[in-house]
Design a protein around this nucleic acid. Structure first.
Length: 278
DNA sequence: GACAATGTTACAGT
DNA sequence: CACTGTAACATTGT
């Protein structure tokens, strides 16, 4: 569920809720989340530590601790981080509970894909160092450099090592706004197309953050409140509905295994290759 | 029952 | 080597 915008909304919500709180107990930990430690080992490592910071890196959430270590959390598809009262009870899909000074942090994850890692130094964690420039701050030059690839532009924008934070929803939206066909080979895009993509990445994400993120099925922020940006989506999950620009029905196709939504008229593959079939 | 779902990774094949 | 498609992870909803 959560892409950059949703993770950012979660982090902004968590920061004031968690800052200064101490982890006083871990009353709940499902085995599938123990990447490195058993329940008792993790308790030993974390209990007594104060939370000093909450940050986002791509779609990862970094929780800084008073001993200098960091918890690194990825929500994958259905993970939620919820701040609740201390007396809250675990529901069916809760992966862990951290009891804090005067509240509790719940990790709720229906599909159990989410992950939790404790690291001495995030700058040495491969999954983080591999990340490309953050989508909110990437420069045109960096995007142009990332586009030196034969992959379809959609596949490239989803590649976290090329650009960090984008997921299926926002890539569909950005390519629609930039009027670029998702199957267009990245390296064959015209310069102005790359610029158009770059011009739309920041604003779409910022608008979504302002709207509290996109809630399609599961996403809620750290206070259990859904976002509203799904109402503002132009093409995502809108197949058959009229394009907001030209009224042509929105089409759906699969690209590297993911549903892709586009307007076949607005998003012409106007790149050099004349033969356009796969 | 079939299929799809906001993410990522491993693997087989071209 | 570069890339593509598929399955897999586990669960729910249509």
């Amino acid at each position: 569920m959560p892409e950059l915008a949703e993770v950012e909304v979660i982090v902004r919500g968590l920061r004031p809720q968690l800052a200064g709180q101490t982890i006083v107990a871990i009353p709940w930990l499902k085995p599938h989340l123990e990447n490195d430690f058993t329940h008792s080992q993790l308790t030993q490592k974390l209990v007594g530590l104060r939370i000093t910071s909450v940050d986002r890196l791509g779609k990862y959430i970094l929780i800084g601790l008073s001993n200098g270590k960091h918890l690194v959390i990825h929500l994958r598809m259905t993970g939620k981080l919820l701040v609740k009262t201390k007396d809250s009870l675990p529901t069916k899909h809760v992966s862990f509970i951290f009891e804090l000074t005067d509240k509790a942090l719940f990790f709720d994850d229906i599909r159990k894909f989410g992950s939790l890692v404790l690291t001495d130094n995030p700058e040495e964690l491969p999954c983080l160092t591999k990340l490309g420039p953050d989508a909110l701050t990437i420069t045109v030059k960096q995007l142009q450099a990332a586009c030196l690839s034969k992959k379809p532009i959609k596949t490239l924008l989803l590649d976290q090592e090329k650009i960090a934070g984008l997921g299926n929803i926002y890539v569909c939206e950005i390519l629609f706004l930039a009027q670029v066909h998702p199957l267009a080979m990245a390296s064959r895009l015209m310069e102005r197309q790359v610029q158009a993509i770059h011009r739309h990445i920041g604003p779409v994400l910022k608008k979504s953050i302002k709207a509290g993120g996109t809630s399609i099925s599961d996403y809620v922020n750290s206070s259990n409140v859904p976002g509203a940006f799904q109402k503002l989506l132009q093409v995502y999950q809108r197949s058959g509905q009229p394009c907001p620009v030209c009224v042509t029905p929105i089409e759906r196709l699969k690209i590297s295994g993911r549903s892709t939504f586009l307007c076949p008229k607005c998003q012409k593959a106007e790149v050099s290759s004349p033969k356009g079939h796969k």
